[in-house]
Amino acid sequence: MSLVPFPSESRVRWRRLDVPGREDARVEQTAGGWRLTGQLDVEEDGVPARLRYRIDCDDAWRTRAARIEGEMDGRPVRFELAADGAGQWTRDGHPLPELAGAMDVDLGFTPATNTLPIRRLALAVGASAPVRSAWLRFPELRLEALEQIYTREAERAYRYRAHIEGDGEPFTARLDTDAFGRVLRYEGLWEAELATPGDPAP
């Protein structure tokens, strides 16, 4: 079964499972595709962060722009990214060749961006696909390319794997979603407290 058509407007509230943290996020349909916005407060490695983001995607869920701003440990944070939808990226207008080939932005502090490849790939149950993302590593707040694999293990469950440079073993986690592909539980990290509109009957 394919994913249910995405609602024109929806909201999710998540809480972190391993450290203090909460996020309110929204997805809205726009004239050109989709917009994700969110605001979160989290404390990672003893460092408090308050961040906001806005991600604009085309109608195929390919990232075209992303803005991240706020503060971390009292210091200002700001990233302004743009993508052409074909794998080329810039920051503040300057090319980022190290991100070439990335189709999605992946913000390491939110499960919202997992929905982008889930929607874009529309995998059948049992299928897998590689993903190259423009990853904002958190809490380091460093941009780098990240090679990932998404496997749709069940109707509403995905296995996420990432090969993080410098780590010995690949990172892996189960993502439980709703019928729209929004993450309701990110194994060990996040759990939804509120998701609107209501999930349709299976």
Rank of each mutant, 00 (worst) to 15 (best):
S128Q: 09
R152E: 00
T110E: 06
L175P: 00
R152G: 00
L107H: 08
E153H: 06
R120C: 10
L141F: 03
D104G: 08
T110D: 07
V125K: 07
P170M: 05
T113D: 03
V105I: 15
P130C: 05
I149Q: 14
A124T: 12
F171Q: 05
R156H: 14
L141G: 02
R119K: 06
R159P: 00
R142H: 12
R120V: 09
L175F: 03
I164N: 03
S133W: 06
G108K: 10
R159H: 11
I118K: 03
L123G: 02
E153A: 14
S128R: 10
T113A: 10
R182P: 02
P170D: 01
E155L: 15
P130A: 07
E191G: 10
V125I: 14
L175Q: 00
L123T: 04
D176E: 15
L116V: 08
S128E: 10
A127E: 15
R120Q: 12
F171I: 13
D106V: 13
R142C: 10
F109G: 04
E144K: 14
A179Q: 12
T115Y: 11
V131C: 06
E140P: 03
Y150R: 00
T113G: 06
G188W: 10
P170V: 13
A134F: 10
F180T: 11
E144H: 13
P111E: 06
G181Q: 02
D178A: 09
R152A: 02
P139G: 05
R142N: 08
W135S: 04
T110V: 12
D178H: 05
R137E: 15
L175A: 01
L107T: 08
T151N: 00
L141I: 11
E144Y: 07
L107Y: 10
D178M: 07
Y160E: 00
R120N: 11
A162K: 09
T172Y: 01
L146N: 04
R120G: 08
T113Y: 11
I164V: 15
P117D: 06
T115N: 09
L189F: 15
P139S: 06
I164G: 04
I118S: 04
N114L: 09
P139V: 12
P139L: 06
A134N: 05
V131H: 01
A145V: 12
I118V: 15
L141C: 01
A157N: 07
